[in-house]
Amino acid sequence: MWFGIGVSSAAPAATQTLREVVTADADGLDLFSVSDHPYYGDRLDAYAVVGTALGATSRISGLVNVTNLPSRPAPMLARTVTSLSALTGGRIVLGMGAGGLWDDIARLGAPRRTPGEAVRALAEAITLIRALSGGGDRVTFDGEFYQVTDLAPAEAPTPPIWTGSGAPKSLAVTGRLADGWIPGHAADWLSERFRTSRPLIDEAATSAGRSPADVATVYNLPGRITPAPLDATRDDEGRWIGGSAEQWAEELTGAVLDHGAGGFVYFPPGGPSAETMRRRWAEEVVPRVRAAVN
């Protein structure tokens, strides 16, 4: 099980972001997550955030949720994550996305890809990153999108690879090749997105000779953690809105035991209460869920 916290990549919030990660590490959380939008000048580079924060901590792992693959070529991304793994004792999770905001990506000078090309590039990237980690024979790879010649792989093992796949073909790539899936748009275990998407991952995993259980589902969860229970923890459309620590723990425990959830990354609402909710997550919700599912 993974229990994490989402942090901001906004440049003005840099000091606060590092403070939040250090606190999360001290609180025993497993993971911190930061988004990757390198085309925005008011955002910090996601891997700079991860590297700096991991250098200030001792236990917690870092996740870019999710890496903007078109702007980070797979061979260099492999070197980045294996270097971070070697420097931190393996405290890195590789989140990957095929790309989505193509007008913004193109402004960086990165290639604009069709949906089909983006999915094929994602599959190539995962395959190549695995080949360029974990030691072994030198790698020559002649793909549609990536070509490398006679490269020595890094000795560091391949980190867990999670995708933010959404469309059917990219979900199939996740089932065949990835270790985890992050449903988009804060979808949870009761959402239509999960009900229609997860079977495609499971089918692809089985067809590739894998167990569907090899691909964890890790949820991005917004919502309030309130001092007292709420009358309703979901809105009229069934979206999770939050509740007390006890209500959160009951809901997340059910997600693990009844729906096979593999982890949760909490994103508190903004404003002056955000820090209080982060502490409730780490000190009240997470310990309850861990005790209930272990």
Rank of each mutant, 00 (worst) to 15 (best):
A106I: 06
T114C: 05
Y47F: 15
S85W: 13
A46M: 11
L94P: 07
T80S: 07
P115W: 10
R113M: 15
V49W: 03
P73G: 09
R43G: 00
D42C: 09
E124V: 12
G62M: 03
Y47G: 13
L108S: 01
M96Q: 02
T149F: 14
A48K: 06
A98K: 11
V50R: 10
I92Q: 07
A48G: 13
A118V: 02
S85F: 13
G99V: 12
A106N: 06
A131R: 13
D42L: 00
T149S: 15
S58P: 09
N65F: 12
D104F: 01
D137L: 07
D150S: 08
L108G: 07
A46H: 04
M76W: 12
T127Y: 03
A125I: 14
G55Q: 12
V93R: 05
R130F: 09
L63F: 03
R130C: 14
A53F: 03
A152K: 03
T82D: 03
T88I: 14
R130D: 14
S61M: 10
L122Q: 01
G41F: 13
D103G: 00
A125G: 12
A110N: 08
G100S: 04
A53P: 01
G100E: 08
I92T: 10
A106S: 09
G136D: 02
S85I: 09
D42A: 11
G97Q: 04
A125S: 15
G41N: 08
E124H: 06
D150R: 00
G41R: 01
P70V: 14
P73F: 08
R107S: 15
P73K: 03
G89A: 07
L94K: 01
L69K: 09
G95H: 07
I60G: 05
L151D: 03
A131V: 08
T149C: 13
S85C: 04
S85T: 11
S58M: 06
L77V: 04
L132S: 04
R112Q: 14
I92D: 08
A56H: 13
D45E: 13
G134T: 03
R113L: 15
L108A: 01
G51W: 06
D142E: 15
T52H: 14
A106D: 06
D42V: 08
L132M: 12
D137M: 07
A56P: 07
I126M: 03
G55C: 11
I105P: 10
A78D: 04
G62V: 05
S58I: 00
L54P: 05
F145S: 04
L77T: 02
I60E: 10
D45R: 00
R130M: 14
D137K: 10
L69T: 07
G109M: 04
T82R: 00
L122F: 00
L122N: 06
S61D: 12
A86I: 07
V139S: 06
D103M: 07
L44Y: 01
A154R: 00
A98L: 13
A106L: 04
D137V: 03
D137I: 00
L101G: 11
R79E: 15
L132P: 09
R79T: 15
V119D: 08
P75A: 02
Y47T: 08
R112L: 15
E117V: 09
Y47P: 09
D142K: 08
V148A: 10
R91A: 13
I105Y: 06
G116C: 12
R130W: 09
A48M: 12
G99M: 13
L101P: 11
